[in-house]
Amino acid sequence: MDKKIGWGLFLGRVILGVIMVAHGFQKLGHMDNTVQMFSKLGQPEWLAYVTAVIEAGGGLFLLVGLFVVPSAILLGLTMVGAIILVKLPAGLIGGIEFPLALLGLSIILAMAGSDKLSISHLLNNKNGSK
Rank of each mutant, 00 (worst) to 15 (best):
I93P: 01
Q36S: 14
Y49L: 12
F38M: 07
G57P: 08
L117R: 10
A110Y: 02
S39K: 11
S118H: 09
G57M: 10
A82C: 10
P70R: 05
P89F: 15
E45K: 11
E45T: 12
L60G: 11
F61L: 15
K40F: 09
M79V: 06
F67N: 01
G59L: 05
A90S: 14
Y49D: 02
I108K: 04
I54L: 12
P44T: 09
G113S: 06
A112T: 12
P99D: 06
G104Y: 11
M79Y: 15
G58E: 01
Q43H: 08
L41S: 07
I119W: 06
K40W: 03
I119R: 10
A52E: 07
G59H: 02
V64I: 14
I83K: 02
L117G: 01
L109H: 05
L103I: 08
L92M: 13
L47S: 08
F38E: 00
L41D: 03
V86F: 08
L77W: 13
P44R: 01
K40E: 04
L41C: 00
E97W: 04
K40I: 00
L77I: 15
Q36P: 00
L85K: 10
V69C: 05
G91F: 12
P44D: 09
L100K: 06
Q36I: 00
P70K: 07
P99E: 06
G113V: 01
I96E: 00
L77D: 06
L66W: 11
F38I: 03
Y49T: 13
L105D: 12
I73C: 09
V68S: 01
V64Q: 03
G59I: 08
G94P: 04
P89V: 11
K87T: 02
D115N: 14
M79G: 05
G65M: 10
F38A: 01
I93Q: 10
I93V: 15
M79K: 09
E45C: 00
L92I: 15
S71A: 14
G95Y: 13
L92S: 04
P89N: 10
A82M: 03
L66G: 04
A90F: 10
A112Y: 10
I84H: 10
L62Y: 00
L41P: 00
G58I: 04
M79P: 08
I83G: 01
G59Q: 05
G57N: 09
L47C: 06
V50A: 14
G104W: 06
G113W: 05
I73L: 09
A110V: 07
M111G: 14
F67M: 08
L74A: 14
M37Y: 13
L92C: 04
F38C: 02
P70Q: 00
L102F: 14
E45R: 07
A110N: 09
S114A: 13
V68A: 02
I108H: 05
I73W: 11
L75R: 03
T51L: 08
I83Q: 03
T78N: 10
Q36R: 13
L105A: 15
L74M: 13
L109N: 03
L102R: 14
L105F: 03
A72K: 03
W46L: 09
G113L: 07
I108M: 12
G57D: 07
P89D: 11
